[in-house]
Simulated assay, not measured.
Amino acid sequence: MTTLLLPDISRQATWSVSSSKQGLGVTNLTGHPHQNTDTYWQSDGQQPHSITVKFPTRQQIHSISLYANIDKDESYTPCRIRILSGTTQYDLQLVKDLMLEHEPRGWIDIPLNDHQQESVLMAHLVVVELPLNYENGRDVRVRGLRLLAPPKNDHLFKTKKILPFTTPEYFMYDSFR
């Protein structure tokens, strides 16, 4: 599914980062949908670097999109991305551990569902951990990050089979009047 069909829920959250260089903080991550990818967050501390996104209520999260560019950032570019989620920092569980196969040059879409279940992640807290960079770099740069919810339109759920329930009996009772 293309991320264009998915609502961006990033602005509903409170954001924090493990560390940052002066002037290159968390506000550079959370722009509008067509944000300027010339700005970036840069860490300034020990690895693993992390971005923490906390929602006031539990949210359905379909996927995360991260913008990285090896041509501009070289050794600052992450090559491993770990996604953890939970209700607080004390019950975080690993959702994804992704080692990038190709050098990134743009948006990296990270679906958070199990390909067999096609479900969505429910979480108050999401942590994007960046433990490893290309060329053994220490600090990391991320030029954009978006958290995307499932489509709002029920028709997309049914036709794209995002929900595991597809029987006519289920769809008879799938909405309130």
Rank of each mutant, 00 (worst) to 15 (best):
Q12S: 11
Q35M: 15
D174I: 00
R11C: 09
Y40I: 05
K152T: 11
L92Y: 01
K96H: 12
L84V: 04
M1Y: 05
G25H: 06
Q22H: 11
H102F: 09
S19H: 06
H124S: 10
N136K: 11
L4P: 00
L148C: 04
T77M: 07
Q12T: 15
R11S: 15
Q89K: 14
L92F: 05
T52I: 06
G86K: 06
K54T: 14
Q116M: 08
T57Y: 12
L121C: 06
T52N: 12
E135I: 12
E101Q: 15
F165M: 10
S20F: 01
P7A: 07
H155C: 03
R58S: 12
K160I: 06
S175K: 12
D91V: 08
V127W: 01
R58I: 08
L4W: 03
W15A: 04
H32P: 12
R141F: 09
G137D: 02
T37A: 06
I64W: 01
N133M: 05
P168N: 08
D38F: 00
P78W: 02
D97K: 08
D114S: 12
L100G: 02
I81E: 05
E101P: 04
Q47H: 02
S50I: 01
K96G: 08
P48D: 09
D38L: 04
N28G: 04
E74M: 13
P78S: 07
R177N: 10
E169F: 07
R80D: 06
K72I: 00
L29P: 02
T27Q: 14
N28F: 00
R141K: 14
I61M: 07
Q60A: 13
I70K: 09
K72Y: 00
G106W: 03
Y40G: 04
S50C: 07
Q93I: 13
V17N: 02
G25K: 01
P150A: 00
G144Y: 05
F165H: 11
Q59E: 15
N153V: 01
I83S: 02
S65N: 13
D44M: 09
K96V: 14
K21H: 10
D139F: 12
M122S: 13
Q22A: 13
L132G: 00
E101N: 14
L125A: 01
T14D: 11
D38Y: 03
K160E: 14
Y90H: 15
P48T: 10
S85W: 03
L84D: 03
Q22S: 14
R80A: 04
L163P: 00
H34G: 09
D44F: 10
P150W: 05
S119Q: 06
S65Y: 01
T88C: 03
L147Y: 09
E74I: 09
V120D: 03
S10W: 00
V128I: 15
T87H: 15
A123P: 08
L29M: 07
D44H: 13
H115E: 13
T166R: 00
G25S: 07
F171A: 02
L145A: 07
V127C: 13
L100Y: 05
T14G: 07
E103Q: 14
T87P: 10
R80H: 10
V126H: 06
R141C: 15
Y170P: 01
Q59S: 14
L98G: 07
R11W: 08
L145Y: 03
G144W: 02
D91Y: 09
I61Q: 03
I64H: 02
T2C: 09
L163R: 04
D154T: 11
V127T: 14
T57M: 12
